[in-house]
Design a protein around this nucleic acid. Structure first.
Length: 869
RNA sequence: GCCGGAAUGGCGGAACCGGUAGACGCAGCGGACUCAAAAUCCGCCGGUGGCGACACCAUGAGAGUUCGAGUCUCUCUUCCGGCACCA
């Protein structure tokens, strides 16, 4: 056996062994339980980053674990290959996105292979290949015919200089990233998927996903946002015509407290008012400037302008002014809201700004009179004095009683809503309604590097879906975008075509699909390699649903929701008839972070990669100072954050693999942090992981030459089996960091034996198997070299021996008044009375009790005894 | 702004159900080996007081529930993810 641990050599050999035997290629096998383990496929951005290493190691640990547990495990890999970065790289390097993408795929594939992942490469796919995206197009045409894909206008960011649509990411502080021009909103025709058709199902089915983290389900639930309320009509007259302004509210009980209405700038009332009033026109124009990014919209200062139009409260007959508000979104509900400043924070702020009246119509135990007594200044009529601070006077709690509301006075929330909805219905001015926050999914992108939307625009027949026989609509791969619009528009041989229905000259759609479409069904395609006549086939029914899906928490909403939608669409098309949910279990991994450092010498920050920094520490290990290793220039520590190009704090996995080998990279990423936490990078800890693997190798080496005594060490054996029992629990709980630490503890125990015996032999075989999913190469060799078997992957997963875990005596913690005072060894069979007697006789207990009287004795079986005095 | 998370020694983390706070590792300190260094091995390692046995303090801050709280409840602070065209 090789004396020194040389990971590069060992890993190459192990990978050749698996390759030759096609160890990871799987087919449907009804005799075994299947396990479909999937990690989110990567965008081929250049080379692997640490997030990938972490993600795919988690998947690989599970894959190898379930294989050893006897499952038929599928773990495929592919490429989410369409997207914006390829166009940016193309512009920068004057290289077609296709060429850049395929070259990145080649690099990253070889990196994945060097990490020794148990991937079935014969299923590899790339979403930019026609044989894949053909089925995006095929499914689109099905949905188009059903009305589940349809055309309407949508709002985009428009760069007026480049005359192009910008992604949100390309808008920086309201300006185009390349031109610096102020971005405008623009309405253009787009295709949408009617995801709202499935809103109820997507929401309800969350309850049937026990394998998903609660936090993700909650985020999805809030995103879908079902709310039950009342649609209310406010009649008005405009240019002599009777009309109704509709709003939706969950707080119909506050209708009598409405003092104004606010509509979006795009609302018909706003447009009508803009025609007559230049002030309104100016404001509406103002609102149309800026980007469409919602996070920014939500934080802008709430502004408005009165339209001069009044509507009538349908129940009280009160006249209410209509305002245009920049905080009202046309895309939500009716594009209009009723303003109830007494009971809504946002309306309150708006009313305060524009001196609109505020009415209290809900009371929560405190009478208005009592409230008003605390008001001391006329100026603060809109505030109440509370806790030495002036606080806004509004209350949002739903449980309240109506006041100042005429016939509804005294009604509680639900009773008031019911009564008001009934009265509105009678007048034809409202009824109860369910409202969703979820909006339909706009999939059109005015970009080149994506899947062409298979539609032909015919002057006579309108928008016609491309017939099946003409699919795929192939994207030409030779174009280089220039940042000013989609180059497909300038390619007549792509654009000019014939109408499939009437045969006359027609234009092809040049928009491509949102790349989220590509990634919404790839998991099903992996099940069906080589299938060229269908999107998926019956093999998908065997493999689906994905048993374990692993990916970043940043995908908690959009990607997962779109995939759930697509699975339903595929089900309803009869493709995978029995499965509604694509992912039975979900693990959301945390991000990989690193320290960052910069120098300030030149007056502007120059970011120095942590690998080039030497840190000085005090005796405790606290950071005192840091300098650039090369030239000793002092650097400033900027804290910890995501690895990024801009802060030059990325750690290249390749450098790590070259230096320590894949097993160290894998072991470190598992050991450093539980999978769902963020992982803070530390070079020193990597060193520690390497040291551990080398210790394992060295021990194996020595052991292979040693003679073993036939004896067993009962205590050490107990320790090993107890650790194994815990590790097996932990691997099921997906806490791989403690599994890694169990491996270390078992090595410590085995090394601690006074002489090598059968305990060592057994302990080492447990260690190798337990470690093998995390560090498969080193364990592959050790298993063979030490004569345990030919292939550790074929070995049975280790189980603790119940006989080894039996104990006659156990140690209990003894507390007095909840504070630990000592421990005591007692026979396992001791009953409550015996325990109480033992505890009372303990010296340190007597000393604590002194003269006091024992009130009770709490016994937690097998753990502790608490004497309460 | 809205939705969702997180916070434990110098650092990463452990403590699964409310029951010994700090497992395992990193860094640091002391020692062995060595001409020396590296590697390796042994010991120490939250804070304060004490020769010591031991006592007290301590899980972002503040309150509460409990025999007992890192864990449950409420309020707050800071940081992170998402917000529909980055993927």
């Amino acid at each position: 056996m090789q004396e020194t641990y040389e990971p590069q050599v060992l890993e190459r050999e192990a990978q050749d062994f698996w390759e030759t035997r096609r160890s990871f290629q799987v087919t449907e096998d009804p005799s075994k339980r299947k396990f479909y383990c999937l990690s989110m496929f990567p965008y081929p951005s250049g080379k692997l980053h640490m997030g990938h290493v972490r993600n795919y190691t988690i998947g690989d640990v599970l894959t190898r674990y379930y294989r050893m547990r006897g499952y038929n495990v599928l773990q495929p890999m592919g490429w989410d290959a369409f997207g914006l970065p390829a166009e940016n790289a193309a512009m920068a390097n004057k290289v077609p996105p296709a060429k850049w993408t395929y070259s990145n795929i080649a690099t990253m594939k070889s990196q994945l292979q060097s990490l020794g992942f148990a991937l079935d490469w014969h299923r590899e796919l790339a979403t930019c290949k026609p044989e894949y995206y053909k089925w995006n197009q095929w499914l689109f045409t099905r949905l188009f015919k059903k009305g589940l894909a349809y055309k309407k206008t949508g709002t985009v960011n428009w760069d007026p200089v480049d005359q192009t649509v910008l992604a949100n990411e390309q808008v920086i502080e309201g300006r185009g990233w390349r031109t610096g021009a102020l971005v405008e909103k623009r309405e253009i025709p787009m295709y949408f998927f009617r995801i709202t058709h499935y809103a109820e199902d997507l929401l309800a089915a969350l309850d049937d996903l026990p394998g998903w983290p609660e936090q993700v389900k909650l985020m999805q639930k809030n995103w879908i946002g079902k709310s039950e309320g009342v649609r209310i009509g406010f009649p008005y007259e405009l240019d002599g015509r009777k009309q109704v302004l509709w709003v939706f509210t969950t707080r119909a009980d506050t209708l009598m407290g409405a003092t104004f209405m606010a509509v979006a700038a795009e609302h018909p009332i706003a447009e009508a008012a803009a025609k007559r009033d230049p002030k309104v026109r100016a404001f509406v124009e103002e609102c149309k400037k800026g980007a469409v990014i919602e996070a920014e919209l939500a934080q802008i200062e709430k502004k408005g302008v009165a339209t001069g139009i009044f509507v009538t409260n349908p129940l009280s007959g009160e006249k209410l002014p209509v305002w245009v508000g920049n905080y009202v979104l046309m895309g939500y509900g009716e594009g209009a809201v009723m303003g109830v400043p007494g009971h809504d924070e946002r309306d309150f702020a708006f009313a305060l700004e524009y001196r609109l009246p505020i009415k209290q119509v809900i009371e929560h135990g405190v009478s208005i009179a009592a409230r008003q007594q605390s008001w001391t200044k006329e100026d603060y009529a809109y505030y109440e004095f509370d806790d030495k601070q002036w606080k806004p006077w509004y209350e949002e709690k739903e449980q309240g009683v109506c006041v100042n509301s005429g016939k509804y006075d005294g009604l509680t929330y639900q009773a008031a809503v019911d009564a008001i909805a009934a009265d509105l219905k009678q007048k034809g001015l409202g009824e109860k309604q369910v409202q969703w926050r979820l909006r339909d999914w706009g999939i059109s992108r005015q970009r080149y590097w994506g899947c062409p939307i298979p539609v032909i625009h015919c002057p006579a027949c309108g928008d016609v879906a491309v017939p099946d026989k003409d699919l795929p609509v192939v994207l030409p791969e030779h174009l280089v975008p220039d940042g000013a619009g989609n180059p497909l528009n300038k390619l007549p041989e792509f654009v000019n075509t014939k109408c499939p229905e009437c045969g006359r000259a027609a234009k092809r759609e040049t928009d491509t699909m949102d790349t989220f479409v590509d990634s919404s069904w790839y998991f099903a395609r992996f099940c069906c390699p080589g299938q060229d006549n269908a999107m998926v086939d019956e093999r998908a029914q065997y493999w689906m649903a994905v048993d374990q899906y692993i990916g970043g928490i940043e995908h908690a909403i959009l990607h997962l929701l779109y995939s759930r939608f697509f699975q339903r669409v595929m089900r309803d098309e009869g493709l995978i008839p029995e499965i509604a949910e694509p992912f039975a279990n979900l693990l959301t991994q945390g991000m990989v972070l690193a320290e960052s450092y910069y120098t300030d010498a030149s007056g502007r920050r120059e970011w120095v990669n942590p690998a080039q920094v030497t840190v000085e520490r005090d005796a405790k290990g606290k950071i005192l100072a840091a300098k650039r290793t090369a030239d000793g220039v002092p650097v400033i520590y900027d804290g910890i954050g995501t690895m990024s190009k801009s802060k030059n704090n990325g750690v290249d996995p390749q450098a790590l693999i070259d230096k320590y080998g894949a097993d160290t990279a894998r072991f470190y990423t598992m050991f450093a942090s539980p999978p769902t936490n963020t992982l803070e990078w530390s070079d020193e800890s990597v060193e520690g992981s390497y040291r551990f693997l080398r210790r394992v190798w060295d021990f194996g080496c020595k052991f292979s030459r040693a003679k073993c005594a036939p004896s067993m060490d009962r205590e050490i054996r107990y320790a090993i089996h107890a650790e194994l029992r815990k590790a097996n629990d932990d691997i099921e709980r997906q806490k791989f960091n403690t599994v890694a630490s169990a491996c270390m503890k078992i090595l410590n125990a085995v090394e601690g034996l006074p002489e090598w015996d059968e305990t060592s032999r057994e302990g080492l075989s447990i260690l190798i198997r337990l470690l093998s999913p995390i560090a498969p190469h080193i364990t592959h060799h050790l298993w063979r070299e030490l004569g345990y078997g030919e292939d550790v992957m074929q070995a049975a997963w280790p189980e603790p021996d119940p006989a080894a875990l039996e104990q006659d005596e156990i140690e209990l913690v003894v507390q007095v008044n909840g504070v630990k005072r000592g421990t005591v060894r007692v026979p396992k069979s001791a009953d409550q009375r015996a325990l109480e007697a033992i505890v009372k006789s303990l010296e340190f207990v007597k000393r604590q009790i002194g003269e006091k009287i024992i009130k009770r004795i709490v016994i937690v079986p097998g753990r502790l005894i608490n004497v309460v005095v």
